[in-house]
Design a protein around this nucleic acid. Sequence first.
DNA 1: AATACCATGTTATATAACCTTACATCTCCG
DNA 2: CGGAGATGTAAGGTTATATAACATGGTATT
Lengths: 124, 124
Amino acid sequence: MSREIRRTMPLLSMSIVMQLTELSARQIRYYEEHHLIEPHRTDGNRRMFSLNDVDILLEIKDYLEQGMNMAKIKRIFAKKSDQSVQNEIDLSDTELRRVMREEMKQAQRMQKSSIRQGDLSRFY
Amino acid sequence: MSREIRRTMPLLSMSIVMQLTELSARQIRYYEEHHLIEPHRTDGNRRMFSLNDVDILLEIKDYLEQGMNMAKIKRIFAKKSDQSVQNEIDLSDTELRRVMREEMKQAQRMQKSSIRQGDLSRFY
DNA sequence: AATACCATGTTATATAACCTTACATCTCCG
DNA sequence: CGGAGATGTAAGGTTATATAACATGGTATT
């Protein structure tokens, strides 16, 4: 649960993600355009990526190198997200809402960056 | 050993580190001036911080809040680094050199960002 | 109390990094 | 050949960060 938060914290700038993935900015923006990732934006409109985003980009890159096209890749991710939706509805409705509220509060706190002393160990 | 590498990879920009630590840019640069951290620089001269840097900054912040001054804090870190030097010489001289060569090669590869597919899981 | 120093804030000026938009190019497929 | 998909590239504008210099508030020293 809190693992999910670490993975989705927007920590990384465009240039670092380009290095980590060896994709061009153009490519990364293009995949965003196709809703495969949805990086956070700073007040100044800069994209900020999470480790999760990088994972997805690496996966995309892998698929591309295997010769798939966007359409196919989009279908793969759509399917996956279906499955995780399926997992979610295995929780009771009220339980799910409770969990999500918790996650969102946490995420907000993260975004506002009021991280308590020593908490950094949770990121790795 | 490779844990050390993850922790020292320069991934984070100034603004993110400011958020994570709740320190001002001025403060962070000042602590660098005093050699408590030594962030990497991009080709364009921007600082790039590692998770390790953030940890150190949080520690500094903690000490400051306890009322210590720079001189004291510097001494604390100097002592620590002495201890880790002590740990290192517990290895044989040749062994140590071998390990360091490995680490540096790895770090270089990281810096050049030629990370193989799927390797990202190592960051967290 | 006056002085001096430490830590931080603030401002000015320069430039790197990023943004969007538009157009160009290349490859593959029918 | 013609068109669509994926990426490159260039223009023009904005944000984030750099350094340097000076300002300021708090503490300690004499």
